[in-house]
Amino acid sequence: MNLSELEIGEKGIISKIELEGMMKRRILDLGFIKGTKVECVLKSPLKDLKAYLIRGSVFALRKEEAEKIEIRVNHYA
Protein backbone atom coordinates (compact mmCIF):
# COMPACT_ATOMS: atom_id res chain seq x y z
CA MET A 1 0.00 0.00 0.00
CA ASN A 2 1.24 3.51 -0.63
CA LEU A 3 0.78 6.82 1.13
CA SER A 4 -1.64 8.27 -1.42
CA GLU A 5 -4.14 5.53 -0.61
CA LEU A 6 -4.59 6.68 2.98
CA GLU A 7 -7.90 8.40 3.63
CA ILE A 8 -8.46 11.14 6.18
CA GLY A 9 -7.90 9.80 9.71
CA GLU A 10 -6.03 6.68 8.59
CA LYS A 11 -2.51 6.04 9.81
CA GLY A 12 0.44 4.06 8.54
CA ILE A 13 4.13 3.49 8.97
CA ILE A 14 6.55 4.32 6.16
CA SER A 15 8.29 1.20 4.90
CA LYS A 16 10.05 2.29 1.73
CA ILE A 17 10.72 5.43 -0.26
CA GLU A 18 10.92 4.93 -4.00
CA LEU A 19 11.49 8.54 -4.97
CA GLU A 20 14.75 9.52 -6.62
CA GLY A 21 17.28 12.30 -6.44
CA MET A 22 16.38 15.69 -5.16
CA MET A 23 12.78 14.91 -4.30
CA LYS A 24 13.90 11.96 -2.20
CA ARG A 25 16.29 14.21 -0.30
CA ARG A 26 13.63 16.78 0.30
CA ILE A 27 11.18 14.19 1.53
CA LEU A 28 13.79 12.66 3.85
CA ASP A 29 14.64 16.12 5.19
CA LEU A 30 11.02 16.69 6.13
CA GLY A 31 11.14 13.56 8.24
CA PHE A 32 9.57 11.00 5.89
CA ILE A 33 11.94 8.16 6.68
CA LYS A 34 11.50 4.43 7.13
CA GLY A 35 9.65 3.56 10.32
CA THR A 36 7.90 6.93 10.71
CA LYS A 37 4.24 7.14 11.62
CA VAL A 38 2.12 9.19 9.24
CA GLU A 39 -1.51 10.16 9.36
CA CYS A 40 -3.50 11.55 6.48
CA VAL A 41 -5.23 14.64 7.87
CA LEU A 42 -6.53 16.58 4.88
CA LYS A 43 -7.71 16.14 1.37
CA SER A 44 -7.88 19.02 -1.06
CA PRO A 45 -11.41 19.90 -2.30
CA LEU A 46 -10.18 19.04 -5.77
CA LYS A 47 -8.21 15.91 -6.54
CA ASP A 48 -4.61 14.92 -6.14
CA LEU A 49 -3.41 16.69 -3.03
CA LYS A 50 -3.43 15.31 0.50
CA ALA A 51 -1.82 16.57 3.67
CA TYR A 52 -0.07 14.31 6.16
CA LEU A 53 0.71 14.79 9.82
CA ILE A 54 4.25 13.67 10.42
CA ARG A 55 6.42 14.36 13.46
CA GLY A 56 4.10 17.13 14.64
CA SER A 57 4.06 19.03 11.33
CA VAL A 58 1.64 18.92 8.43
CA PHE A 59 2.88 18.66 4.83
CA ALA A 60 0.92 18.45 1.61
CA LEU A 61 2.08 16.08 -1.13
CA ARG A 62 0.69 15.58 -4.61
CA LYS A 63 -0.53 12.13 -5.53
CA GLU A 64 2.42 11.52 -7.84
CA GLU A 65 4.91 11.72 -4.99
CA ALA A 66 2.76 10.10 -2.33
CA GLU A 67 2.35 7.08 -4.58
CA LYS A 68 6.06 6.46 -4.36
CA ILE A 69 6.10 6.19 -0.59
CA GLU A 70 5.27 2.69 0.58
CA ILE A 71 3.53 2.22 3.92
CA ARG A 72 2.42 -0.52 6.26
CA VAL A 73 -0.91 -0.16 7.98
CA ASN A 74 -0.96 -1.36 11.53
CA HIS A 75 -4.55 -2.16 12.37
CA TYR A 76 -3.85 -2.53 16.04
CA ALA A 77 -2.17 0.82 16.56
Binding site: L19, M23, R26, V58, F59, A60, L61, R62, E64, E65
Partner: peptide, 9 residues
Protein backbone atom coordinates in the same frame (compact mmCIF):
# COMPACT_ATOMS: atom_id res chain seq x y z
CA UNK B 1 7.88 19.45 -10.67
CA UNK B 2 7.18 17.78 -7.40
CA UNK B 3 6.52 20.03 -4.49
CA UNK B 4 5.91 19.91 -0.78
CA UNK B 5 3.82 22.49 0.97
CA UNK B 6 3.85 22.94 4.69
CA UNK B 7 0.55 23.79 6.34
CA UNK B 8 1.83 25.55 9.45
CA UNK B 9 0.02 25.43 12.75
Amino acid sequence: SSFTLELPH
